[in-house]
Nucleic acid binder design. Structure first.
Length: 435
DNA sequence: TCTGGGGTCCTAGGACCC
DNA sequence: TCTGGGGTCCTAGGACCC
């Protein structure tokens, strides 16, 4: 792991990655309006029209031909179908995207091994020690880096048949912005002296970390461009956004960022969640909900085992039909990867939610991860499964009073948390006794 | 014809300990 | 008994990203 800030860094972003991968194996579709997304509840066979889609999927990627109709990623597929019914819908094929992802990263690594993984289709590359940059001095370093970046693009194309865009700068923040300046198939340098001309005129949302909320808040202050943001006194920003975010906004607007390129990282949490095809009623659909809970628990447990981690905190996530989301979690005495213990904890968490509406989504998460076999020893002997609960005497609207007294409420909860569901694909996980 | 799934990081308040 | 500060752990929610 490199702990120093790089002096020259590249951000490499694959161009319309999923769509490009699909076109690679279906070149006859080139030029057509193409939408990739969905999964469950949708059409799985390639070549079907988007117009006949029913389900709750979203657009993962759309080609420019489809975008011309107003379709964009994140949009519900039903809405996209209304806008572009003739577009072709392809299901996401993550296995194939991951295969090509490994290929392009390998191609880069052969030339520039100091790489930070930023997901399936992008990476940061520390160029300081790369031959061609390393021995150059002064302004020649930028020239050397440009040549290296061009080589990287060529190598990625040779290895995968896919195009990418690369941004070069003296930190990650600016490299990310630079890679977006000339898409697709771009190669952009953003040098310190370029900031007034090429960075400050951009809208604030182009900064990685300013999302819809902060963007809207800045707009309300009359701040549209990065330059306008840079002109504000830090104190003003701290006033509006708090100490941490305020300071960061100021630094970012001036193009300052000293984060190192991290070549490895440990996961913080693992989770699985599912959105139901139809919203489920906590009482009427209790068997389906129980089955779903057990299934998500098993998947998380399997993920933990496969990756060699155990976790101390088990949490659940619920989304109601009005899209309100609640989470509950609890911490165990001893980290685990066992489905049975995760399930028991998840049920405990669920008891603390008032199930007043139909449910749209159910998720299970395990966090506070440690590598299995390297766990920190428990402070006390693990005589009790659940750690002593702390804090939170305050009651939220979704929380049940403890203990639950309202007859109707507790009835609903009991029906959801039935410990011997009539219908489950893993009866072995049913918990005996009723705590 | 509303809004996926898998993550990270931050904030904030209370409990608890010194 | 009261007052108070600092640090850490735990939980809930939210912003943001790919």
């Amino acid at each position: 792991m490199v702990a120093r800030p790089p002096r020259l860094v590249a951000h490499l972003d694959m161009d319309a990655f999923y769509a490009s991968v699909e076109l690679l194996r279906r070149p006859e579709l080139r030029g057509q309006a193409l939408v990739i997304g969905g999964g469950r509840g949708g059409l799985e066979a390639p070549g079907r029209r988007l117009g006949s889609y029913t389900g709750r999927g979203v657009v993962t990627t759309a080609t420019y031909e489809a975008r011309a109709f107003g379709v964009h990623s994140g949009m519900g597929l039903m809405k996209a179908a209304a806008l572009a019914p003739h577009a072709l819908l392809l299901p996401v094929d993550f296995d194939e995207y991951r295969r090509l992802s490994r290929k392009f990263k390998l191609a880069v690594a052969r030339q520039a091994p100091c790489i930070e993984d930023r997901g399936i289709d992008e990476i940061y590359i520390d160029l300081d020690d790369v031959p061609g940059v390393h021995e150059a001095v002064g302004h020649d370093r930028w020239g050397g880096a440009r040549a290296v970046a061009q080589e990287l693009k060529n190598n990625v194309y040779e290895a995968t048949g896919l195009r990418c865009s690369i941004g070069l700068a003296n930190n990650k923040l600016l490299a990310k912005v630079a890679s977006d300046l000339d898409k697709p198939d771009g190669l952009s340098l953003l040098m310190p002296e370029d900031l007034p001309q090429r960075y400050w005129p951009l809208p604030v949302r182009r900064i990685h970390g300013i999302g819809p909320k902060s963007g809207a808040q800045l707009h309300q202050l009359g701040i549209v461009t990065i330059g306008e943001l840079a002109a504000l006194e830090p104190a003003q920003l701290i006033d509006c956004f708090g100490d941490s975010l305020g300071r960061w906004l100021h630094e970012a607007a001036h193009g300052r960022d000293d984060r190192p390129v991290l070549t490895s990282s440990e996961p913080v949490s693992l989770s699985r969640e599912t959105t139901f095809e139809q919203d489920l009623h906590p009482r009427v659909d209790r068997a389906l909900l129980t089955t779903a809970l057990v299934r998500q628990v098993e998947r998380v447990s399997q993920d933990l085992v496969t990756r060699g981690y155990v976790g101390r905190t088990v949490g659940i996530k619920l989304r109601f039909d009005d899209f309100r989301t609640v989470t509950r979690d609890c911490t165990l005495e001893v980290a685990t990867d066992q489905a049975e213990l995760i399930l028991r904890s998840a049920r405990e968490c669920l008891k603390r939610v008032l199930l007043s509406r139909r449910l749209r989504l159910l998720g299970v998460r395990v966090s506070s991860l440690q590598r299995k076999g390297l766990e920190e020893p428990a402070v006390e002997p693990p005589s009790v499964a659940l750690a002593k609960p702390r804090s939170r005497t305050k009651r939220e609207p979704d929380e049940t009073p403890a203990p639950a007294r309202g007859a109707r409420e507790s009835q609903v909860q009991l029906s959801f948390f039935a410990e011997n569901p009539t219908q489950t694909d893993t009866p072995g996980l049913g918990i005996q006794g009723g705590g």
